[in-house]
Design a protein around this nucleic acid. Structure first.
Length: 269
DNA sequence: ATGTCAGGGTATCCCTGA
């Protein structure tokens, strides 16, 4: 079972590039982020005609997540539990029925968190967008813990907006005060890992120079000024099934690309 | 850190978000 995550930065803008990549990469399941569309406006029929089951959790203008799957999906849920006031569409779950095993897949778009406000001592304050990010991550940790208790294969795939370590940025010094790399952000990410999750890419590939996002601005792609912020976290039962993990870097150089590229794993499931 | 995109409003540009 090949599972990918791909922040497409707008389904309307990627209406050609996404089907092109699906045909070339041939994943079984894809978690999409930033569809930037309400459910009714998502081009569902286009993908259904290509053989995909389509489940969306959209909103107007911003955010929005979806799952495309060639395998049957069951028990789809939308929204991250823990705050009924939260109206941002950033979380979707479904059980993917693989030929050998069922896998619980969470597709997520973790809040960016910028701009960060700092106090007089230069410490980041948990207010505004950064406060929302940290609060969202605490809720995600609770959900991640509940999912572990099922002792089933669980995959949490998406745009985490977290640069886990300095080696995951071409220019780490630029990100020191940024919500994607602040110590508090990294600590919240590690707290989720420390529940017992495995970060798929780092379980298989070591060293710097591996990125999943290059800004549209300032020639970031041409200069390979990237960051690695798209991740797949695996429960122990899922990690035991992993046979591969890679980043489809070349997608960034194709016509009308997203600023993110797909990251994928292969599971014996 | 800004040489860019994307979406939406009310539009032939301005704003937000990243």
């Amino acid at each position: 079972m090949k599972i990918a995550t791909f922040n497409i930065n707008g389904i309307k803008a990627r209406i050609e590039a996404l089907p092109r990549w699906l045909a070339a990469a041939n994943p079984d399941v894809v978690a999409l982020q930033e569809i930037k569309s309400v459910d009714e406006a998502f081009p569902r029929a286009l993908f259904e005609d290509l053989g995909w089951h389509v489940e969306t959790h959209g909103q107007k203008s911003f955010n929005g997540v979806a799952i495309l799957s060639r395998l049957p999906l069951e028990d789809v849920t939308r929204g991250l539990p823990g705050d009924p006031e939260d109206e941002q569409a950033r979380w979707i779950e479904a059980t993917v029925i693989g030929p050998a095993r069922a896998v619980r897949l969470c597709g997520l778009y973790l809040p960016n968190g910028n701009p960060v406000e700092f106090d007089a001592d230069g410490r980041p304050m948990a207010t505004g967008k950064y406060g929302y990010k940290l609060g969202w991550m605490a809720r995600m940790q609770a959900r991640a813990a509940a999912l572990l208790a099922s002792e089933e294969p669980v995959v949490m795939a998406g745009d985490y907006n977290i640069i886990p370590q300095d080696e995951d940025a071409a220019r780490p010094e630029v990100w020191r005060q940024d919500a994607l790399a602040l110590p508090e952000s990294r600590a919240a990410f590690r707290s989720i890992l420390n529940l017992g999750y495995t970060e798929a890419f780092r379980a298989r590939v070591q060293g710097p120079g591996h990125y999943s996002f290059w800004d549209y601005q300032a020639g970031a792609w041409e200069r390979n000024n990237g960051i690695r912020i798209d991740h797949l976290l695996l429960s122990p039962q899922a990690a035991d099934l992993m046979t591969g993990c890679s980043i489809d870097k070349s997608v960034r150089g194709e016509e009308k690309p997203s600023d993110h590229v797909p990251v994928w794993i292969d599971l014996q499931a």
